[in-house]
Write a protein that binds this DNA or RNA. Structure first.
Lengths: 112, 112
DNA sequence: TTTATAAATTCGCTTATATGCATATAGGTA
DNA sequence: TACCTATATGCATATAAGCGAATTTATAAA
């Protein structure tokens, strides 16, 4: 985690909260997020980069894919609480998680 | 707490985080905050109103003063964690708390 | 009723955000 | 090599934020 304020700023956008909620489940590539949230590639990529610059997520490049995952550290306690106590009781984020499951079972190998 | 996103947005500014940290201690009027944080009246007032609109704080008008305090509710868990686990270990916010004590002991009756 | 003080609001300006569209890059695959 | 596919980036734009200076409103006190 870089500067606390940058982390909080990356939580202050609904799309990024939705991404955070998904990444809290597992590492995902950009296309998983686009498909699950039904957002444009540009939007997904830009927000992920924003979150990466804030130190909230990290990336791993494999072949043509960019996999993103949470960059957890000891200061993430309040983020855990935000996700578990707030997001996870909200319909939007619950649906996103369902859609993620559906998408992951649908896609054959990697991203397509 | 109104919309979660509005609450998070009101956490995404350093001045507002500093105000939050002070209000976590006790109810304060605008002048206490100006003096403690050494910021302009306009700035203090505007941020407090922003936080009020987000549902993070509430106000109480008495005579010519406006007292602000946290509008706590069951969804504040992640905010407690943010303050106790993050802010309170950072020098800036610690100093602000010291300055608050000094200011409160200095001022005679109410605000002056 | 005039004056002083606390707080809120308006104006103008500057900077940051979010986003779409188009394009570039980079790694597979035919 | 030529061509996909995944991701990143440049450009343009619309909107929101943050802030100082000045003004207004509200209340209290002289």
């Amino acid at each position: 985690m870089e500067k606390l304020l940058d982390v909080i700023k990356s939580l202050s956008d609904e799309t990024r909260l939705r991404i955070l909620n998904l990444l809290y489940e597992k590492e995902l590539c950009v296309c998983d997020i686009m498909e699950t949230l039904q957002i444009s590639q540009t939007k997904a990529s830009r927000h992920l980069i924003y979150m990466k610059n804030a130190g909230l997520v990290k990336d791993r490049k494999y072949a043509q894919w960019a996999y993103y995952s949470l960059d957890k550290d000891e200061k993430m306690k309040f983020i855990d609480s935000l996700i578990l106590d707030n997001l996870r009781s909200m319909e939007l984020y619950q649906k996103d998680m369902e859609n993620l499951k559906i998408w992951l079972s649908k896609k054959t190998i990697q991203c397509n």
